[in-house]
Design a protein around this nucleic acid. Structure first.
Lengths: 196, 196
DNA sequence: TTGTATTCGTGAACGCGGTTCATCAGGTGA
DNA sequence: TCACCTGATGAACCGCGTTCACGAATACAA
């Protein structure tokens, strides 16, 4: 495969991912249609399957971008000068706001994992590890007495807790709650965690 | 519509729900097939749509049964003599074990709400309210200083936290963790919550 | 440059699955 | 007994992801 062909393929990939990102953000990953994507990208239906294995792979590519933006948003939410609990609060709020502003893209991050059967891509686990690292750091300050294993467990537990609060909070058909109330829920839990 | 006809319709509904429950428990709500259900229930494909509006309605019926069983499992997990924090721990463990043992049925409870667009049925919100009531009670003992509103918020926050821990914990492609580790994560968070 | 071989793009066609509908059978009332 | 109606039936419809045979384009050797 020549370099020109390769470049064209890459360009098509980009167009497809960009179109998919727009459509997912707009209507959710569940209503992504191969024919719509082909039209958006100005290519034939079959060309999609030349650039990607299947639609799933495109969603995964979008997820990669989303995860990267999410990581940036969380990392930008603190400056390192805060008290550890305060830093957890800031990160959690950043997580909430990202999820709230990019609800469909954020949901696609977790929706897909449930349905797909293949192994999780490495970059996905790496991104998760990156998020976890941000959490572990302040936790280690708050709980110097915890073992290494318990610290890892606490990290996952805290991430999962905030994730759950955001997930159900944004899901207004289950327990829908205004955004500032969700923030308050996070604060309630984190402040209890921080009080020794 | 005669009484006999009505009875037949009800019988078909029961057979369909039973078959759907079996198939969802086995393979998840996502791989439920109308044609399979018709075969299981010994009826024609079209008969399904006489008994139910669509497949979604059948899944909702199954969810009703699941929710009821979940409520029983949680309610049976404590006897009222425990310290409040201990009661929260017992309920959370019951929640975890139910979710773990009936993973596909439990997931269907929340999967469907994300995709469906109609309003949530009343019984669903009632069931949720019932679960919340179990949580609010010990919380009121632990935090007598909280306002009524904050107590409600804390209730939802705690439920969501445990839900999140269970959700991501069971999702081994995201952060998969053995069941006893999940239990420990719940304990870590709840014990911190309980410590004033 | 020209001819050939290989690769790529194309969109019609396939298979699957939910839902509908024309048709039929079985029950109901006169 | 017969006309009527209601509920069951499954073939057909439609949308959608994915494939594939074919024709165009490109790469390469002479």
């Amino acid at each position: 495969m020549s370099a020109k062909t390769e470049a064209r393929k890459a360009a098509l990939r980009d167009k497809l991912v960009a179109a998919a990102e727009r459509r997912i953000a707009e209507a959710g990953a569940g209503s992504l249609r191969a024919r719509d994507l082909a039209q958006d990208a100005g290519c034939a239906l079959g060309a999609i399957y030349n650039a990607f294995d299947d639609l799933n792979a495109i969603v995964m590519a979008v997820n990669g971008r989303t995860f990267s933006k999410l990581g940036q948003a969380v990392a930008a939410s603190f400056d390192g000068s805060e008290e550890p609990v305060q830093r957890l609060v800031k990160m959690s709020h950043a997580y909430l706001h990202f999820a709230s502003e990019h609800a469909n893209l954020w949901r696609a991050l977790f929706d897909l994992e449930m349905t797909a059967d293949g192994p999780v891509p490495i970059w996905y686990l790496e991104a998760l590890r990156g998020l976890f690292a941000h959490i572990t750091e302040p936790l280690a300050e708050i709980f110097p007495e915890l073992s290494r294993d318990d610290l890892q467990l606490m990290t996952r537990a805290l991430f999962s807790s905030v994730h759950g609060i955001v997930l159900l909070g944004l899901e207004n058909r289950i327990s829908g709650v205004p955004a500032d109330q969700i923030e308050r829920m996070i604060d309630l839990v984190l402040s209890r965690i921080g009080n020794k």
